[in-house]
Design a protein around this nucleic acid. Structure first.
Lengths: 353, 353
DNA sequence: TCCTCGGTTTTCAACGTTGGAAACCGGCCT
DNA sequence: AGGCCGGTTTCCAACGTTGAAAACCGAGGA
């Protein structure tokens, strides 16, 4: 394998520790020795063995990122940001996909792996209560998106209620009155679905519109097919909606596909809003209006908080609310939009082509 | 932190090695001792320290995956598969994003990190010659997609020339004669772009159609905006194309967006084929015809070959050609497609909704 | 000349783990 | 009783690294 300190030491004719001192740029090493060691290092192509170093330090230098699946663009984009943020702090990221059959098998693998990592950023979509139970009790943890149980860990999230309210209000402001919601979930009690539904209901109530539970369609998962199926269901109603608020962009894109395939016009017949601002939505036809969470801020806040914990910070659980903005695009904005003229040929920042 | 063998040993009143033996299910441990140790393990919540174990074994149990960026769906989907395949073998995957300013800084970080990993799967889009140079010489390596320099490492790829030929032939079979290509790249001499261009030219030549270099548009990177821009360029030609072969799906989706925004019909006016079979293309409107590489096969072959190398296999570089298929969807298939009737309401496997 | 002092270098131990070999132990054979 | 045997357990060393402390060494001061 690679050369070790010992090999370098032997070649340079000094002790192992002296080589270590050179490598770590310890001050008190004579110039002569230093250069001799440097030479030996170059000659042998020595690189420090991080595993050993980590053992010595009692740390691995690796944090975990637990996500449902990378195939979901939002998580891929988030992972990209987290890896970037961690890299800037010289940490590595190990990704754990928790989706699918989150069985015992996967649990134990996560359990075992959790011994390699110094901390974990986890998207609770990923996590059942068991999952947490099987985890090292002392593993620093940062949650993304929603709290689990009584505030036990640091949390980074956008204000989902407000976001959903804004999305719905935007549809209301277009004059839509029969606004559907796709993505309800009955399973996880405190899930993202619930808060988004709450914001939706708040907005309707504020506008004096009665809540029609027929217009609220659950989604088993948050993929395009679920959105497409939900939309088909909505179209089959006696009185179909004139707008849809989808709890994420993939659902929205699936719904969009159903609408277009059915020969309906978006946004003329039905307007659509999603959440996540994934790149796909910036290039769909029509482009997708969406709630855009500040992913960079989320990732950086998560990494920062986690590393603080790893470095021994002992404080009550903290909560950071990340920024979000409403990105108005074609799926709610047929004519006269700032996008319209531009998007066709010379798009501005909101119509990135 | 967590309990160590020593702690367990003290509690159980045995030696450290005996605990180790129990943990590793060594045969010759008396039942009495075994259960006493087990009890102590449970009581302390002992988990083996993988860092130490790896130091002992001279391995980290981690392989690297170097990709340009996770934000590109193809790579995200591939990463998902690689992580899955590695997990099945009890290995972890550390993702390295090599894109962006692949400068010295990033190089050194990769260099340093390469000391943590036991092997590396790398997508050469990610890699300059320098990158390889800065790498441990003895690090087992598997390349994805294209060979770099004189066959120095194992390789997994589809037959890109054949794939491009099939895509182009498909367009020809629709009666298109003015077929453009988007995604040429002049930089990397042996890149994917070149082989795909080769297949495109082969197909044209076989059909007796002259090569028109005006119809071959380069793309700086392989993102949607590049495809959109390239398509705008093509539309500005005196004689615009009636079909486009895009070197990946993102380019195709960008091109699609430009066409629709310009009021053209796809595939009626212009047909489009991409490469990669990313999920987005299965839900765009129209859905996207594409060359679908068998990502699962690619990931599994890559992991298998890499682990063989890690386990000491010493053989000349191997090359595995993964399967690919042409997925015909709406972007080349306006009417009478098997998709048509179904896609509207009850899609089959090729029209996943 | 002896001592001190500061810079330089080495020795020692430890991080948590496991392979190898030695030590222990009860039973069984001679 | 002495010796051997096999199962069980412990001891030792090592993986590569670094903090702490000890050792070394030449120079300057008493």
């Amino acid at each position: 394998m690679g050369a070790s300190l010992k090999d370098v030491a032997k070649l340079a004719g000094v002790s192992v520790k002296t080589v270590s001192n050179v490598v770590n740029e310890y001050q008190h090493v004579s110039e002569a020795t230093r250069s001799r060691v440097r030479e030996a290092i170059d000659q042998l192509g020595y690189r420090p063995n991080l595993t050993a170093r980590h053992l010595r330090y009692g740390r691995s230098g690796i944090i975990g990122l637990a996500l449902p699946e990378l195939g979901i663009p939002y998580f891929a984009e988030l992972a990209e940001e987290v890896i970037g943020a961690a890299e800037r702090e010289s940490w590595s990221v190990l990704i754990d996909q928790t989706d699918g059959r989150g069985d015992r098998e996967r649990l134990t693998s996560s359990g075992a792996r959790s011994r390699t990592i110094d901390g974990l950023i986890i998207s609770p979509l990923a996590l059942d209560a068991e999952f947490l139970a099987g985890m090292r009790a002392d593993l620093p943890l940062v949650l993304l998106g929603e709290q689990v149980g009584p505030g036990t860990a640091d949390l980074v999230a956008i204000d989902n209620v407000a976001a959903a309210r804004e999305a719905t209000q935007h549809l209301l402001s277009l004059g839509r009155r029969r606004i559907a919601a796709i993505g309800d979930q009955h399973v996880s009690a405190a899930g993202t679905a619930n808060v988004r539904l709450q914001g939706y209901r708040d907005a309707l109530a504020a506008a004096g519109i009665a809540y029609d539970h027929e217009l609220v369609v659950p989604a088993e998962s948050y993929h395009r097919p679920d959105g497409a199926a939900a939309m088909r269901l909505l179209l089959s109603l006696a009185e179909p909606p004139d707008a849809v608020f989808c709890f994420n962009d993939l659902l929205a894109l699936g719904a969009l596909r159903t609408l277009l395939a059915a020969g309906l016009r978006v946004p003329d017949d039905v307007a659509i809003v999603g959440v996540d601002d994934i790149e796909d939505g910036r290039f769909s036809t029509p482009t997708l209006t969406t709630i855009a969470p500040d992913k960079t801020q989320i990732a950086e806040a998560a990494v920062t908080m986690l590393l603080e914990r790893v470095n021994g910070l002992d404080a009550p659980p903290r909560e950071i609310t990340a920024r979000h903005t409403l990105q108005v695009r074609e799926s709610t904005n047929a004519g006269g939009s700032p996008c319209r003229g531009q998007a066709r040929h010379a798009p501005g920042p909101h119509c990135p082509m």
